[in-house]
């Protein structure tokens, strides 16, 4: 593996990192290889290490940096970035491919299931709120003051129950996002020790 081949392989391993991080790493190793003074036909990866292993180090450092940033600036974008980097780390870790695929499938299925459940809960809550409001509005069309009042009361209660359901759903969703970040941090932290 010569210099060009090595850098190309490294670039391929780092293709999902932000461009700035990738270019910095490639520049560093390009300089480094020049300084190592390789012979014409020498295999660079024997002395320097395999591109895949080097990429693993770089990705881990990038992930730690993102987590540090996430602690100071919250937001959906940085959460997505953490999840993304965790997937990269799992893929670049030495566990065999079938296990990695199985792990990712399990995580993906779990996330998908919980997301769907939360989404349907939220939609049900919205439907209940709507039903309550419609009931309250329609109550004015009913004959008799007493009946109007009872229907209005029932409508408002239903709307309140819906609102409560919505609040609980939002709370659960936030908890769920926190859990995902925690799991990602655990995985990244584990890689750091290795």
């Amino acid at each position: 593996m010569n210099k060009t081949e090595f850098l190309k392989a490294l670039e391929k391993q780092l293709k999902y990192l932000p461009k700035e991080d990738r270019d910095d790493a490639l520049n560093y190793y390009s300089e480094y290889i020049d300084d190592m003074n390789f012979a014409e036909n020498e295999d660079i990866s024997i002395r320097l290490g395999k591109p895949k292993d080097i990429a693993k180090n770089i990705i881990s450092e990038c992930a730690e940096k993102t987590i540090d940033k996430h602690d100071s600036e919250k937001g959906a974008k940085s959460t997505a970035k953490i999840v993304w980097l965790t997937i990269l780390i799992i893929c670049s870790s030495p566990v065999t491919l079938p296990i990695a695929i199985a792990l990712l499938t399990i995580v993906f299925t779990l996330v998908l299931t919980i997301t769907v459940v939360l989404l349907s809960l939220g939609l049900s809550a919205l439907a209940v709120i709507a039903a309550g409001i419609i009931c309250s509005v329609l109550s004015f069309m009913l004959p008799g003051f007493g009946t109007k009042l009872v229907a209005l009361g029932i409508g408002l209660i239903i709307a309140a129950v819906g609102a409560l359901l919505l609040i609980i759903t939002i709370f659960l969703a936030e908890l769920f996002i926190k859990l995902i970040i925690l799991i990602c941090k655990a995985i990244i932290g584990k890689k750091k020790e290795a």
Binding site: R47, I54, N57, I58, E61, E64, K65
Partner: peptide, 15 residues
Amino acid sequence: ISESTLYPVLRRLQK
């Protein structure tokens, strides 16, 4: 240490 150990360290210290 291996040849590739210091790159992440240097990045971190720089950051």
